[in-house]
Simulated scan of single mutants.
Amino acid sequence: MDKTTLKQLSEFRKTLHQYPELSGEEKETAKRVLEFFKGIKPDKTIKGLGGTGLAFIFEGKESGPTSLFRCELDGLPIKEENDIKYISTFPGKSHVCGHDGHMAIISGLGIELSKNRPIKGKVILLFQPAEETGEGAKAVLEDPEYGQLQPDFAFALHNLPNYETNQIVLKKGPFAAASTGMIIQYKGRNSHSAHPEAGNSPAEAMAKTIVALERLPDAMKKFTLVTVIHAQLGEIAFGTTPGEATVRATLRAYENETRDLLVTYAEKLCQQIAKEYGLEVSFSYTETFAATHNDPEAWDFGNEAAKKLGLKTKHIRIPFRWSEDFGLFSIHTKTLLFGLGSGKKQPQLHEPNFDFPDELIPTGVGMFAEIVHLLHT
């Protein structure tokens, strides 16, 4: 990549960094991306995909496969703590996951495709909304416009702190965990706090639930993890015995089926606790992510691209515990999600002082461009 293009992409990333938007609200971000692509001139542009999403399509002259390359539009509800000129201008919102960098990489791939269009088939560049909440991939996949695209392969990357800068992290099969946010609500009966015996407080049931849920993985044969993230008992009213309690937890596993089994066990556990204390219990779920599963054929293209570019690779054995809603694409098509090392000393993702290193941009663009070359020439 020449210095002029890198400078252009770096400046674009910094602009995106200054104006982060939360999941489902990425209207201005989408406008900025649309403006950037005016000079690139794809063969077709789809707007409003799955809400605020965008797809840019580059068509070859010969028949062949359809490949999709995806990045994320959304930022996080985290206050940025960085000493940089382009720090987020929106209080409490930031790009401390590096989605600004991922967008710059896919934009760089757009520049590359404008110079070297695919010969066979077509290439789709997808800017996906609402990755952080796990709602964006589902919205895109359910959009009728997406139904017309039908990619044979889908590729994405995520920058990974704690790995060598520009190292490619690969794994066949499960790559990132399935997860869901579980909300448990207990209902008892209020009373005056001077007469707690007249009511039915869910306090003890809530305490037992918090402890028991996190021990639940001990009974599972495969890897699972339960993290209680929030609990609330009644209201702040010193004259009242609480009548309601809510416990929120994130449940994880490396496979969708194992996560679903963990959910079933968690519900049964809470139902037993509710019965023991004479409480009503109900469940709801939020931020559900499918496991990201790397297809062997898609993996081959990523591995070959890294070899041809002479990049350092790390082949991991154990999947990552975090979730990525790119996993939903892997249910519908052959996918590859790979890691791009962002430095051993880089702050972790979602930390308030994270900032995507621009030196990763040429590597990310190079990997994707090489995969395009392997698939479409």
Score class of each variant (00 low, 15 high):
residue 87 I to R: 13
residue 193 S to W: 11
residue 67 S to F: 06
residue 145 E to Y: 12
residue 357 P to M: 04
residue 224 T to N: 07
residue 253 A to K: 02
residue 55 A to M: 06
residue 201 S to P: 05
residue 345 K to I: 03
residue 308 K to Y: 14
residue 303 N to A: 15
residue 293 H to D: 12
residue 351 E to F: 15
residue 103 M to D: 02
residue 112 E to I: 01
residue 180 T to D: 01
residue 375 L to N: 12
residue 36 F to Q: 03
residue 104 A to D: 09
residue 356 F to C: 02
residue 34 L to S: 10
residue 14 K to P: 08
residue 189 R to F: 15
residue 131 E to G: 02
residue 279 L to D: 00
residue 110 G to F: 14
residue 86 Y to I: 11
residue 286 T to F: 12
residue 97 C to T: 10
residue 312 K to W: 04
residue 368 F to P: 02
residue 265 Y to L: 13
residue 8 Q to T: 15
residue 355 D to Y: 11
residue 245 A to R: 00
residue 170 L to E: 05
residue 109 L to C: 10
residue 256 N to T: 01
residue 211 V to Y: 12
residue 28 E to R: 12
residue 188 G to S: 12
residue 70 R to T: 15
residue 79 K to D: 14
residue 280 E to V: 00
residue 185 Q to R: 11
residue 243 G to D: 03
residue 320 F to D: 07
residue 212 A to K: 00
residue 319 P to K: 02
residue 99 H to M: 06
residue 370 E to M: 10
residue 245 A to T: 00
residue 100 D to N: 11
residue 9 L to N: 02
residue 76 L to N: 07
residue 64 G to K: 04
residue 47 K to W: 08
residue 295 D to H: 13
residue 167 Q to H: 04
residue 166 N to Q: 07
residue 60 G to P: 04
residue 355 D to R: 10
residue 288 T to I: 13
residue 123 V to T: 05
residue 57 I to C: 09
residue 192 H to P: 09
residue 186 Y to I: 01
residue 49 L to R: 02
residue 356 F to P: 01
residue 354 F to N: 04
residue 199 G to F: 07
residue 309 L to R: 06
residue 291 A to E: 08
residue 167 Q to P: 02
residue 15 T to I: 10
residue 166 N to H: 02
residue 24 G to R: 10
residue 55 A to S: 13
residue 316 I to Q: 14
residue 295 D to S: 12
residue 287 E to K: 15
residue 236 I to N: 03
residue 188 G to R: 08
residue 48 G to W: 05
residue 136 G to L: 03
residue 264 T to V: 04
residue 172 K to N: 05
residue 321 R to V: 04
residue 159 N to Q: 07
residue 301 F to I: 14
residue 295 D to Y: 10
residue 8 Q to M: 11
residue 118 P to G: 11
residue 199 G to I: 13
residue 250 T to V: 15
residue 134 G to M: 07
residue 338 F to P: 05
residue 116 N to M: 01
residue 255 E to D: 11
residue 165 T to I: 09
residue 306 A to H: 06
